[in-house]
């Protein structure tokens, strides 16, 4: 299967960006309010300025903390095309896959990208390129069944497909 390259402008975050920062509890029960307040404690301008197709680059342990699916969900709802980080909180990683948000673990990504750089991801080949600086990082590929969940648009789409085939 041919997998489209994902391309976008980088928003850069540091280490240990937790799920309470991404999806503050007090707005969690309203997706509309949550969209206005995502990342507010550390980057208040993000929610207002992020453009469709932009890409988040995180440091270590991105999305650590809670199992709230609203964390990857609000990132997707703001139009972010993918999340790349040096490492992830494991439930955030699974949840991103489960809702079909492209996600990839990539060593040294914080060193190689500055805010505003143009980034390109080959999800199948696990390659992350800095187009602005002409650099490429090879990462560990996602397991084929896991990649398949992302490409199908998430685990609920997978479930719908299984229903049809029965």
């Amino acid at each position: 299967m041919k997998v489209k390259l994902i391309k976008g402008k980088v928003w850069k975050f540091g280490d240990n960006v937790d799920t309470d920062i991404i999806s503050p509890s007090i707005y969690m029960d309203s997706p509309e309010e949550l969209r206005e307040h995502a990342f507010e404690a550390i980057k208040p301008e993000f929610a207002g300025e992020v453009k469709s197709g932009d890409i988040i680059v995180g440091g270590r342990n991105f999305g650590c903390g809670s199992s709230r699916e609203s964390a990857p969900e609000v990132i997707k709802a703001l139009g972010v095309g993918a999340v790349v980080a040096e490492s992830f909180g494991r439930i955030f990683f699974r949840n991103a896959i489960a809702i079909g948000l492209p996600i990839i673990t990539c060593p040294r990504v914080s060193e190689v990208f500055e805010e505003g750089d143009e980034l390109e991801i080959d999800l199948k080949g696990a390659k992350v390129r800095n187009i602005s600086k002409g650099k490429e990082i090879q990462s560990e590929p996602l397991y084929h069944d896991v990649l398949d969940i992302i490409l199908k648009g998430g685990i609920i789409s997978l479930l719908k497909g299984m229903q049809k085939n029965e």
Binding site: I91, N95, A98, I99, I155, L159
Partner: peptide, 19 residues
């Protein structure tokens, strides 16, 4: 821990992928 989409999958099938 898992999220609510994976929970829906588990509720339907009783199965889930793990590494």
């Amino acid at each position: 821990g898992i999220g609510m989409s994976e929970m829906a999958y588990v509720l339907a099938t009783g199965k889930l992928w793990f590494r």
